[in-house]
Design a binder for these strands. Sequence first.
DNA 1: AAACAAATGTAGCATTTACTACATTATGCA
DNA 2: TGCATAATGTAGTAAATGCTACATTTGTTT
Lengths: 147, 147
Amino acid sequence: MANLTMKKTKTTDLSLRSKAFKTTRRRNNEVAAEDYSELIADIIEERGEARVGHIADHLGVSHVTALRTIRRLQEEGYLFTSPHKPVELTAKGKKVAEFSKERHELLLSFFLKLGVPKKVAEVDVEGVEHHISKETLGYIRRFMERC
Amino acid sequence: MANLTMKKTKTTDLSLRSKAFKTTRRRNNEVAAEDYSELIADIIEERGEARVGHIADHLGVSHVTALRTIRRLQEEGYLFTSPHKPVELTAKGKKVAEFSKERHELLLSFFLKLGVPKKVAEVDVEGVEHHISKETLGYIRRFMERC
DNA sequence: AAACAAATGTAGCATTTACTACATTATGCA
DNA sequence: TGCATAATGTAGTAAATGCTACATTTGTTT
Ligand SMILES: [Mn+2]
Ligand SMILES: [Mn+2]
Ligand SMILES: [Mn+2]
Ligand SMILES: [Mn+2]
């Protein structure tokens, strides 16, 4: 009640707030695709191939959890594999990996520029990265350039 | 293989990376407590009491989803309520709400200082805030002071 | 080649968060 | 007071992500 006239109140209005929460939930649904793609590309570069076990080890989850998520990501077209074979990225997965890696590295260097110690920055970036819009990423990029 | 000597390789080593993923998963388990506490405090301040329906509306979820999460948060000691009564915060919930609100506002003003438009910043902050360590928050606070 | 070890896969379970459809309780106004 | 509406609660379902225990497959080493 009150606020029938679209006038701004001192606090965030309901529609902008629910939009923020909804966008956040949508982004959370893309986290696995981004982290797995980025990680798989990285492992392939490091060691030639990415096995379920490597992926699980790097994520710190059981190989069963990794396996199931890998299957879902295959359904969704990010990667492909077959029983007892390494995991490979599709074109879509490679694109996500490349974008995610760039974003990860930009945010990491941004945090480091603020003075955050590397170990702390690495941890924070791993969670933060999925919630930074491309628009915000642009402003961060400009900040890095001019400072 | 290789890397038996603790020497740094050019890429992030396995243990730091899995630690980052693990911390991120732990933080994701605290998101509801933080968002709900912050939101409930806000609604109580705005309208005197927080009803399940208000909370659901602001989050953009069904009232059933809000209800179930409220029950879990009651078990965990963040809030209390009883059937058909408004939701109230415990001391623990109030502490989380206060901290979360301060963090939210600091990050929002940080994003605005970088030039991010308010509507974009609001959305990004809603997701990002849960993944910023207290340590990083300190560096951001210092940045805001000196700029 | 057989045995062993490592990697991968399966079965079964739990938690969190989401929904719709329907039931009940509370509230407000006629 | 009683009815209609709004608010809240319940039932039942689903998806994503986590686990342990056990089974099978693959690769290595005698
Ligand atoms: Mn990440
Ligand atoms: Mn990352
Ligand atoms: Mn939030
Ligand atoms: Mn918030």
